[in-house]
Simulated assay, not measured.
Amino acid sequence: MSLTPQALRLLSREIVTLRSDPPEGVRIVVDEDDLTNMEGWVQGPSGTPYEGGYFRIRFQFGIEYPNLPPKCTMITKIFHPNFSKNGEICVDTLKKGWKKEYGVGHVLVTIKCLLIHPNPESALDEEAGKQLLADYDGYCKYAKLMTNIHATPKLPPAEFRSTASSSSTTKAPQMTQASSSRPPNSASSVTSTGTSARPTPLGMSVSQEQSPVVEQSATIGDDTKLMKNGLGGTGKIPAAGGAKTGAASKAKRGVKRL
C-alpha cells in the first residue's frame, strides 16, 4: 500500500537523518526502490540480558501514516514480557500514545527502552511476565540464553560495522599526521593553536642570536680607540705609514675575531 506524496517526503527526510546521525544502538535498512520496505535494528543495551544481541524489527506503513503509527513486528526471537512469540510488540507508542510527530527513529528508541525496562503489567508473553515478577534471576538467565542463541551473530550487522569502520578511518590519519609532524627530541614549542613554533637551530642559544649586535658595538668601540691612539691626543692626522699600520692592525683583529 503506497503512501501519500507528503508522507513519502517526510519518510525520506527521516531516512536521511537516521543514516547520517542515528541514535545510539539503532540502525535502519531500506529498500531504495521502495522506501516503505524498511527494517530496523536495535542493539541490546549493556547491563541487560539482551546485551550483545541485535534485534530486527519490520515496519509496515499504512496509507494514513504518519497520522496513524506503523505496524511493527519483532523478527528476532526474544524472551520478553512485551513481545509475543509471533513478534507482536506491546508498547503504547504504537497504539494510543502515537503522535504524528513521531517517526521510525522514535519507535526504535522506544523499543530499546523497553529492553531496559520491561513492563510485566501489560505482558503479551505471560510466561515471561510471571517469571520476571517471581524469579528475576531466572528470567534474566533464560532471556540471556535466548539472546545468545537467536540474536548474537559472529559479527555485528553490516549497518553497525560500516559506522564503526568509517569513524575509525577518519580519525586515524589525523593522529598519524600530528605524531609525524613533530620530529623526536625536537626543541620546538607548541602554541595554543596546536601548531609548532619554528625550532631554534641546534647549538645556538638566545644570546648567540643576539651576538652580531654585540660584536658590532665592540667594533665601534675599537675603532674609536684606534682613532684616539692614531691622533695621539693632539688632534692631528697621523702619517700615511701610521694609517696603513692602523688599517692592517684593524684587519688583523678582524681576522682573529672571526
Rank of each mutant, 00 (worst) to 15 (best):
Gly233Trp: 08
Gln216Pro: 04
Ile149Ala: 01
Glu64Asp: 06
Arg9Lys: 15
Ile237Gly: 07
Pro173Asp: 07
Trp98Pro: 04
Pro5Thr: 02
Met38Asn: 00
Ala143His: 01
Ser84Gly: 15
Glu88Ala: 15
Ile57Val: 14
Leu10Val: 03
Glu215Ile: 07
Lys77Asn: 01
Arg161Leu: 11
Gln174Lys: 15
Val104Cys: 07
Pro5Met: 01
Gly87Phe: 02
Leu202Asn: 10
Glu209Val: 10
Glu215Cys: 06
Gly203Ser: 05
Lys85Arg: 12
Ile63Cys: 14
Ser205Lys: 05
Gln6Gly: 10
Gly40Ser: 06
Ile78Gly: 00
Ser249Pro: 04
Leu124Val: 07
Pro199Met: 06
Gln131Arg: 12
Val190Ile: 14
Asn119Thr: 08
Val107Ser: 00
Glu126Arg: 12
Phe55His: 02
Val29Asn: 10
Asp223Pro: 02
Met146Ser: 00
Lys130Cys: 10
Ser188Asp: 04
Leu68Met: 04
Pro118Thr: 06
Ala243Gln: 10
Trp41Val: 02
Cys90Gly: 05
Ile75Lys: 13
Lys256Trp: 08
Glu88Met: 09
Ser180Glu: 13
Pro199Val: 06
Arg56Asp: 02
Ser2Arg: 13
Leu133Val: 06
Tyr65Pro: 04
Val206Thr: 07
Lys130Thr: 11
Leu18Gln: 03
Glu24Ala: 14
Ala239Tyr: 02
Arg198Glu: 04
Ser165Asn: 13
Leu226Trp: 03
Ala151Cys: 02
Met204Phe: 07
Ser2Met: 11
Gly97Arg: 07
Gln174Glu: 14
Tyr139Gly: 01
Ser46Asn: 11
Ser165Ile: 06
Val30Gly: 03
Ala172Ile: 03
Asp34Met: 11
Gly105Arg: 03
Glu51Asp: 13
Glu32Arg: 13
Asp223Gln: 14
